[in-house]
Design a protein around this nucleic acid. Structure first.
Length: 284
DNA sequence: CACTTGACCTGTCCGC
DNA sequence: TGCGGACAGGTCAAGT
């Protein structure tokens, strides 16, 4: 599921692949995936790509934006005019010729290259917005700080959360209003790294715990970015390549296997409506 | 207001 | 083999 490291990897890929390209036409295969008028983006040139939390923005030279969220199964895959098949993955059904049945929007560029917005479950979206509309998006206005931005280490979780005592730590880490970009994978990994059980109530999380959480978040997110993110099921980057962070995950998707620290069996429980991976010896 | 649960979708997997 | 149901998890709406 595209979380911060995955969206960051897509952003980096798109920066090298589509900046400077002019949009020549847009095919909307699923109207629910695309909000706004395509006439407002056709003829414009891509200026820059930016990320906030798990959301991505493509800025155009006419002042319009293509604000995008991949949600659970979204992909943004670029293909040049010459190469439609991804090279080197002959047996990989996830990286195939495009469009496929999950393709919802195709953005065509002047050099006949294309950007495919694929989204199996149709939860993701692209919104055409003016700069003013973009900055007024409620989702962006309420979003918490970027964990990889300067100053995050000084961020005071305790004061942000002063009215919240009963919630468990995992649902807090998943709350985009508290901190941006953390999803199920990295919440589980950070809580393992800090020895905190996911169901711990906020009232029992100390300042020292928060300090460990912040340091661990930064370390884990940076490691994942360096590995191209995590591919659990659907995620691929802008070139259609999978990420390899899950090879280094300590608990996520490791239920039934031995804890790499203590040897106890990793368990899968349900917290905040999410599948949650925990070592009950290392985490309390 | 804080917090929890269900809805949104589609594909995969598991048991019968 | 086919079929039903559980499950996957980001965000928002509706419920307690």
């Amino acid at each position: 599921m595209p979380e911060l490291p995955e969206v960051e990897t897509v952003k980096t890929g798109l920066q090298s692949l589509i900046v400077g390209h002019t949009i020549s036409s847009v095919d909307i295969l699923n109207p629910g995936s695309f909000m706004g008028k395509k006439s407002q983006i056709v003829g414009s040139k891509v200026v820059s790509i930016s990320r906030r939390g798990k959301s991505l923005n493509i800025l155009l030279d006419n002042g319009m934006n293509i604000y995008t969220h991949l949600r659970m199964t979204g992909q943004l895959v670029y293909r040049s005019a010459e190469i439609n098949f991804a090279a080197g993955h002959p047996n990989d059904s996830m990286v195939n010729d495009l469009p496929d049945r999950s393709t919802r929007v195709i953005i065509h560029f002047g050099d006949n290259s294309k950007l495919f917005f694929n989204d199996q479950r149709k939860f993701g979206w692209m919104k055409v917005l003016t700069n003013q509309e973009l900055v007024n998006q409620p989702f962006l206005l309420s979003m918490g700080p970027e964990p990889l931005a300067d100053g995050f280490i000084a961020y005071d979780f305790k004061s942000t959360l002063k009215n919240r005592k009963k919630a468990n730590i995992k649902s807090i880490l998943l709350d985009q209003k508290v901190v941006a970009g953390v999803g199920n994978i990295y919440a589980d990994e950070v809580l393992f790294a800090t020895g905190i059980h996911p169901t711990r109530p906020l009232s029992s999380v100390s300042s020292k715990d928060w300090s460990r959480i912040k340091n661990s978040l930064i370390e884990i997110l940076n490691l994942s970015i360096s590995l191209g993110g995590s591919t659990d099921r659907n995620y691929v980057d802008a070139k259609g390549q999978k990420g390899s962070y899950l090879q280094f995950a300590k608990v996520f998707r490791r239920e039934g296997q031995e804890c790499l620290v203590c040897g106890n069996t990793i368990k899968k429980i349900r917290v905040a409506g999410r599948g949650t991976h925990v070592c009950t010896v290392c985490q309390s």
